[in-house]
């Protein structure tokens, strides 16, 4: 959706959606569907992340009247996604583990490593992921938000529904516990 080739700002799309237009909202959905599905998957890996994300978008549409004009849409949306995914995780009664992409699913822009380094990198990732999967939900969520979704501290705070100062302290403790999981043989977990 463009005006003379210029993509509409989120704020414009939101204002139009608030007036009852769904087409601008569909544009917002397209902009944030990837990060929404990823967020749902990170919080509830064994759930239907796509369905959770869709439900969250529907709830967000209904809640647009409570959206604060001028504030960023992405973390506000992700908070709704996170809540939806947490509810589903709670209903499932257990939390599944995150998994790595298969090697052949490597992104086209990834540099092609040598076979030896590829094996080492793969092993490092597997060790780190196993340690991460062993953490409790709060720790895994704050690490996922900062390093996997690459949200800023303020975005992380809003998406997870915690004060900004808590993001720092929770992240610090989560990294400590991750280091503990990795054990003394893995300083920092990775020799990078």
């Amino acid at each position: 959706m463009t005006v003379e080739g210029r993509p509409l700002e989120d704020a414009e799309l939101i204002e139009r959606a608030r007036r009852g237009e769904v087409m601008p909202y569909e544009e917002l959905v397209r902009r944030y569907q990837d990060v929404a599905v990823r967020t749902a998957h990170l919080i509830s890996p064994d759930g239907d992340a796509e369905d959770a994300a869709q439900e969250a978008f529907v709830k967000a549409y209904a809640a647009l009247g409570r959206f604060r004009s001028g504030s960023p849409f992405r973390p506000w949306l992700l908070r709704i996604v996170a809540n939806e995914a947490r509810n589903r995780r709670r209903s499932a009664g257990r939390r599944a583990n995150l998994a790595l992409r298969a090697a052949e699913d490597r992104r086209p822009d990834d540099a092609a490593p040598s076979p030896e380094s590829a094996v080492l990198a793969s092993e490092r990732r597997a060790v780190l992921l196993a340690a991460l999967n062993a953490l409790r939900d709060d720790d895994r969520e704050v690490i996922s938000a900062r390093y996997f979704l690459e949200l800023s501290e303020s975005e992380t705070a809003e998406a997870l529904g915690i004060p900004r100062g808590t993001v720092k302290s929770r992240l610090s403790r989560a990294l400590d516990r991750l280091r503990t999981q990795l054990g003394p043989g893995e300083p920092g977990g990775l020799h990078v």
Partner: peptide, 26 residues
Amino acid sequence: GLEAGLLELGRSIAYPAPAADFASRV
């Protein structure tokens, strides 16, 4: 080192991809 490793790990997670008609289904 840990942060760099986590950033790298994040790009290797097997995320599901939204279907092509995701927005229209919403």
